[in-house]
Design a protein around this nucleic acid. Structure first.
Lengths: 222, 222
DNA sequence: CTCTTTCTGTAGTGATCGACACATAAATAG
DNA sequence: CTATTTATGTGTCGATCACTACAGAAAGAG
């Protein structure tokens, strides 16, 4: 099921494959395809749209990526590799679960509104709707990607309980679902042109619920 | 721009139009079209899908609705007329802004998971992505529909301020954006098979943020 | 050089897209 | 009855869909 002769044992010194060399930068073309899928979605993006944006002919596209579905799958990977850190770096480097979640929501507010890089608004994974009948495999792929957020949040919350940071009685699943809900909702608002400041205010309000639920009184306001 | 000879002055006693009568129930067919658009979205739903679900031929569809875009616009209206009350009835009948928002989120948790009627998961308007280039008019239509939620929330919050229910210092816009974000996020979770109970827990956590922000101490937990 | 391998551009595959021409059927108006 | 009006079913329009056959071009291997 996988191309086996892509990465041979000879890796150092490119060592020109065999035949005529590819005339375009595969990663650069993939980046353009990712951007297009991100903005328009899978169904609404045609091969003609893609070849124009990538600057190549359709035979080159199919030779390099296999099919539209396979290209989308690779675009998802490229999206993760290049944009995940924008939203999750602070989460993973934070000292407490509260700071981690706060970072996640604040960085999301910035990233989803295209304020930290020249990227489209909203999350490509969150807003993807390829799962709606047909393309079942791609649907499963994006649904799995969406589930990762929940897993990471629950893992971090459980660590916080072990560390005594938040009460053992905390409903980890519900709290993680809440944060996931807020982040998802921010993607939709971002696509409807909400500003970074508006989403940051939403993040702050979300953290108030966090503080109350986890009994962290020192951060409360009002 | 409107069909002028649809509702003539003679309204009582149907008074058979003139030619051959329509062989199908227009509203029933529209209901089927709405359901299909709701589940699959505008782009992914083809005329063939629609005619099959509606049980009519394509000439009948075009004679009755004009075009795919016009049918979608009518489907949006049908969606609002038949489903808005499921989510907004409690909001409008509530005595306080807090109860109104709580009702909105709780009823959303039930409706979005298909628990109160035989309807698809998630909100048709929230999850619609017809705005992504092409079909600019439909994009504007759904964006306007999405904005109504924010308007209603802000209106209700301002009333609450006038009534002395919440502090004058409350950031109405931010709080409304927050509730809108949570409701939007719930649509995405609902489509990913989250349960009514999970979304209700999310709604409760969201209300904790509300209570802290509005200084409503009696509802706090922890 | 020739042979093999791989990529590129032209051109086009069958399938499906949204939308409609046309003839016929079913109603009213006279 | 005939004339008019409207809806339906068959068949199909040009455009676009995802995808490829084919021939030539550009590289290494011998």
């Amino acid at each position: 099921m996988q191309k086996s002769d892509e990465m041979s044992e000879v890796d150092k010194i490119p060592a020109r494959a065999r035949g005529r060399p590819r005339a375009f930068d595969r990663e650069a073309a993939l980046a353009q395809a990712t951007r297009l899928f991100w903005i328009k979605g899978f169904e609404a993006t045609s091969i003609a749209d893609l070849t124009e944006a990538m600057g190549i002919g359709s035979p080159s596209l199919y030779a390099a990526f296999g099919s539209k579905e396979a290209l989308y799958a690779e675009a998802l990977r490229h999206y993760r590799d290049n944009n995940e850190a924008l939203v999750w770096a602070g989460f993973f480097s934070a000292g407490t679960a509260r700071e981690a979640v706060m970072s996640l929501l604040m960085d999301s507010a910035a990233a989803l509104t295209g304020c930290v890089a020249d990227i489209p608004r909203g999350c490509m994974v969150t807003l993807s709707s390829v799962g709606s009948e047909g393309h079942a495999d791609l649907g499963e792929l994006v649904r799995t990607a969406r589930a990762i957020t929940l897993d990471r949040l629950k893992l971090r919350l459980n660590q916080a309980i072990s560390a005594g940071e938040i009460p053992v009685s905390t409903d980890v699943h519900a709290l993680a679902r809440f944060v996931q809900t807020v982040q998802n909702g921010m993607s939709i608002l971002a696509r409807d042109e909400a500003t970074r400041g508006e989403l940051e205010a939403v993040a702050e309000l979300a953290m108030l619920g966090w503080d109350t639920r986890t009994g962290d009184a020192e951060h409360r306001r009002g």
